[in-house]
Nucleic acid binder design. Structure first.
Lengths: 339, 339
DNA sequence: GATTTCCACGTTAGCGCTAACGTAGGGAGT
DNA sequence: ACTCCCTACGTTAGCGCTAACGTGGAAATC
């Protein structure tokens, strides 16, 4: 016997009320006396009744799903952001549908289309650089949307993140203050990570503003991993001519890999060459020589972003954009030159 | 003007067929001539029609959602597993609803209940140790379920993973072969990670079988992070009496933190003390002294698991359980004693 | 006491699809 | 010519809820 799971009808019959009263009781909506409400709740529990989410979504013409698209998961940054959001959304009773775009805006666009078919309560996208049409589709569907991790004067809906150009410039200015003159930047292919490109632009502008040349750029075709950092740094150092006096990396992972490559190449850090990461990951706490890096408030971004999106879902007006601060963390991989 | 998104009716009217024919055409189901089919598809595209997932789920009495519950995301292990599954499910047209149980089986149970309300096509749980009732609920609802990362003779439905007891024993036997005699195990609280407890049990049984004492156990109350590994190791070494001759960690993160603590304590690795991790993470490739560790085939597990679940969703019979092999990776943090 | 108000509930009409079954019309078999 | 069958559709009846509006009766107002 494959007894179907009980429906709202069964509860209504058992208590002797209409299904509408059961619906109201289950949702905690006004219009039911507290006596009836608890009677209904008890009956529902006894029968093992659980409201069907799909039926509810169809009838209400919107679901309690929230779609989240992140470039990748194995990355403390996005894992932290997700963690910050998760707690907030979870408490509010939403379920999270996840996408992993692999830094591919086309993939993201396809997923957004599919997501809209679920009539989600909200959508979260990483960054502000999307494929054409994504913005319009989300707006046309009237879906509250949060863009996270970057900033933008005119977001799709709301936006929380850091100013990547300013972050790059801050790193540049710190390095200039140390006396570094010939930076290099190690990252990934230009179209893969728009935020990294903004940081590179900021870094470049800082050096150019002080009359130096812009950074030498080296790009990996693969993920921004430990290994990629090591390989690209090795290649960079193997090139002819004078090597840079400091190396800026797309993130701490690459920087750590790069540090290994430098040492393998016989360069002492920071004696012969400076190294700067990005993000301020947990691994720094246990490294014998902590990285100089820019710490990003990922959990804060997640929590704040989730709250902003929730406010939009509830129809509240909120600031369209929120830019959170970053902090330079001076470690043991850079030094004041000439000391 | 808030023009509603077009429904199946609009497409049917435009082409001059019944909605059923449109439904069939959209789903790629038999019973429509190819001429009509392409005419309908063209009309749908022109109107911007997209089938409503919620309506479809209700009418078909099951959705294309797949629920996945993992203990945590910032962890290469689960990120890899998820990545392996994602590709497979994505291609098959499923959407992934994610939960993050924080190693809390009660949380997992609550989420499973909520997930069932969506009538998902399938559910993925991590491990085989669940809160009471979870198994029954999933079975009663007839939802294809995959348990991943551990093994079990009688899974809820299907299961793919490694044998953690055997893995622990393999580590123990390797250490015994090296000549180590006094191991310690550094992990987290006993009820937080059942898999780690199984590995500990395997490790213990190996040493006991050779007439040695079981491992000294040290547990962190926090996450199995770099920092936790460092802190617990520091505490372990600070204790009176002789220190262990080798340290086994819950995972590579903790092991790496532990290695820092050893060096800070003036112990050389592997000269004075051996260190063994678990998982074989990417960071090993760039460490000056790669960890001795047990490599787990995470991506394989994900891909294989997803395929098994897909087969179950399609009603196929499959092996209920699949145990994948692990491989000991001897790094530079252990040595043959007496050499 | 007649009117208004309000609360607690019921009724009606879908939400946008799909499963299951029904049917017309053309071709093959005898 | 008559079945028989098969293909390409259409019709009917929901899936399990909620929004919007309707209604009776008790309390409040004058």
């Amino acid at each position: 016997m494959t007894r179907q799971s009980p429906s709202i009808q069964d509860v209504a019959r058992r208590v002797g009320v209409s299904i509408m009263t059961v619906s109201r009781a289950m949702r905690g909506v006004e219009g039911v006396s507290s006596a009836k409400r608890s009677e209904i709740l008890a009956a529902a529990k006894a029968l093992g009744y659980r409201p069907s989410r799909t039926a509810r979504s169809l009838a209400a013409s919107h679901s309690t799903l929230i779609g989240i698209s992140l470039p990748m998961l194995f990355n403390e940054v996005f894992a932290d952001i997700l963690d910050g959001m998760r707690r907030t959304f979870d408490t509010a009773g939403f379920d999270l549908v996840l996408d992993n775009s692999d830094y591919d805006s086309h993939r993201e666009a396809l997923w957004v289309e599919r997501m809209i078919d679920w009539k989600p309560a909200g959508v979260v996208l990483s960054g502000v650089d999307h494929a054409p049409g994504v913005r319009e589709q989300l707006r046309a569907a009237g879906i509250p949307t949060l863009e996270i991790w970057d900033q933008c004067a005119d977001p799709i809906d709301v936006c929380v993140g850091i100013d990547h150009v300013a972050a790059g410039r801050a790193i540049g200015e710190y390095l200039l203050a140390c006396g570094y003159k010939a930076p290099a930047f190690v990252g990934v292919e230009a179209n893969r990570d728009p935020r990294a490109e903004k940081r590179l632009a900021g870094l470049r502008s800082a050096f150019l503003a002080h009359g130096h040349g812009g950074p030498v750029v080296r790009r990996s075709e693969r993920h921004a991993s430990f290994e990629a950092g090591m390989n690209e740094t090795r290649a960079l150092l193997a090139a002819d001519g004078q090597h840079p006096d400091c190396l800026c990396y797309l993130n701490d992972h690459m920087a750590f890999g790069g540090m290994s490559a430098c040492e393998a190449h016989g360069l002492s850090v920071p004696g012969d060459i400076g190294i700067v990461g990005f993000n301020g990951l947990g691994i720094n706490a246990v490294l014998p020589r902590p990285l100089t890096t820019l710490v990003t408030p990922r959990l804060l971004m997640g929590t704040l972003g989730a709250r902003m999106l929730l406010a939009r879902i509830n129809g509240a007006k909120v600031e369209r954009q929120s830019v959170v601060p970053v902090e330079m963390s001076v470690g043991a991989t850079t030094r004041m030159m000439g000391l």
